[in-house]
């Protein structure tokens, strides 16, 4: 059974379509990137999948169950990390916060927090507060929080759009590593074509608003990927050119 199935999804704001007719599936363990031009309705699509916004048309199903409201097996990492962390809680406190409603014991919660922080390389910063960390580190905390939650599906909305280029490359590699160690299914939305090819097993290309899927590309790049060599391969260049052409169309 597919992890996520989106069928005929559409959303309109006051009669104006933002997303017109989107259908796709995400298989368990896959990393799928959705790429599209700015303002094409990517975020609206993601909010519909997360159950934050009721779709006007169509359905979203998470491992077979129709999504109504926020599903229990899903975590979201947003672009603006500084606004999605609790400033009065420590790094460990932030990661632990959503776990309390999952019926876990104190010991289990603590071990999950430690594990997630070690995955993102922030074990040393567990006792610090978000404002003491750099932007990239804050986004790592958001990722750790999502990982500790152990969702079936992790949604990421432009997660690296607010950090500098070097941090961005580090965080991209981080996602690839933790995804392998945690066995996570990831759906990542980005406007960056190179990023989508670098990260994804499959790239969905969206059209201008109102969004529809114009192309699905399988990314047959070998793993593990490398920021320098992977980006220089013929396959990489062919794929990014293809996507750029689709988006310009």
């Amino acid at each position: 059974m597919s992890m996520l199935e989106v069928a005929g999804l559409g959303h309109a704001y006051g009669g104006v379509d933002a997303v017109s007719d989107v259908s796709f599936v995400v298989e368990p363990g896959e990393l799928v990137c959705i790429v599209g031009p700015s303002g094409c309705g990517k975020s609206t699509l993601l909010r519909c999948i997360a159950g934050l916004l009721p779709p006007t048309r169509g359905t979203v199903s998470l491992h077979g169950d129709r999504v109504v409201g926020v599903p229990s097996d899903l975590a979201v990492v947003f672009q603006d990390y500084s606004r999605s962390l609790l400033p009065w809680r420590t790094v460990a406190g932030n990661v632990e916060f959503p776990l309390r409603d999952r019926g876990l014991s104190t010991v289990e919660r603590r071990s999950r927090v430690e594990e997630a922080l070690s995955w993102v390389g922030l074990s040393e910063a567990a006792g610090k507060h978000p404002f003491e960390l750099s932007g990239g580190m804050q986004q790592r905390v958001s990722i750790a929080r999502a990982l500790a939650y152990r969702p079936a599906l992790m949604l990421m909305d432009e997660p690296f759009a607010s950090v500098d280029a070097q941090t961005r490359a580090d965080l991209e590699d981080l996602v690839l590593t933790v995804r392998a160690s945690a066995g996570m299914t990831v759906l990542l939305v980005t406007h960056d074509i190179d990023e989508s090819v670098y990260l994804a097993d499959r790239v969905l290309v969206l059209s201008q608003s109102p969004a529809t899927v114009v192309e699905t590309l399988k990314v047959d790049l070998s793993s593990p990927r490398d920021q320098i060599t992977t980006r220089g391969t013929d396959t990489f260049v062919r794929l990014r050119t293809e996507i750029a052409r689709q988006i310009r169309r």
């Binding site: 934050l52 979201v76 603006d80 999605s84 609790l86 409603d101």
Partner: peptide, 29 residues
């Protein structure tokens, strides 16, 4: 209170009560 913060904790299905005590009250503190 930052709507993004509330939305984030809602995504994690944090209960209404803990949203009030753990997010809203410290925000307005």
């Amino acid at each position: 209170v930052d709507p993004r913060l509330l939305e984030t904790v809602r995504c994690f299905r944090v209960s209404r009560w803990r949203r009030l005590v753990g997010v809203t009250l410290p925000s307005i503190g």
